[in-house]
Amino acid sequence: MASAPENEKNASAPEKKTLTLKSMINNEEFVVDEHVALQSVTIKNMVDSDCAGDVIPVPTISGEILALVIEYCKNHANPSASEDDLKKADAGIVAKDIYTLIDLVLAANFLDIKGLLEVTSQKIADSIKDLPHQDVREIFGVENDYTPEEEAAVRAEHDWAFEGFP
């Protein structure tokens, strides 16, 4: 009977495995619980195939973005979070300027985190929804390389979609 409390302790606090993610852009390191990091299919594949060392280098993603990604993964790894909580938390994560959103969508794509890819894409889509295409060009810095004749032809092909737009 004397050993019972010890068993209980072991059961309630199993040793948590952690992984260290390192941004190769600014060498910032993040220590995260393994089950949090494994929401990234890319990281999971590395761990599963024993390709992951003590520190997992993450190329092309800055520390700032990686911190957001980890925040997302932590929220979604929390079993007691309600759907409502997660929605609010997701909205907070994607409430960023367009540069951050683009970096975030690229990070979600690279790390293969489907949920994050979805919410980030949704946010980007929402930010251009219903806007005239001239504004969309400006927001994303898209250069219009159509000749006026070509542009008119594209517009004519889908005239219904442009009804009511300048």
Partner: peptide
Amino acid sequence: LISDLPQSIIETILTKLPIRDTVRTSILS
């Protein structure tokens, strides 16, 4: 910022738009 994103990301974003807006992207460039 957006034209050279991987096609899979662009498609994911386009799927989130109303169809009218998706079709209108054809005029961007």
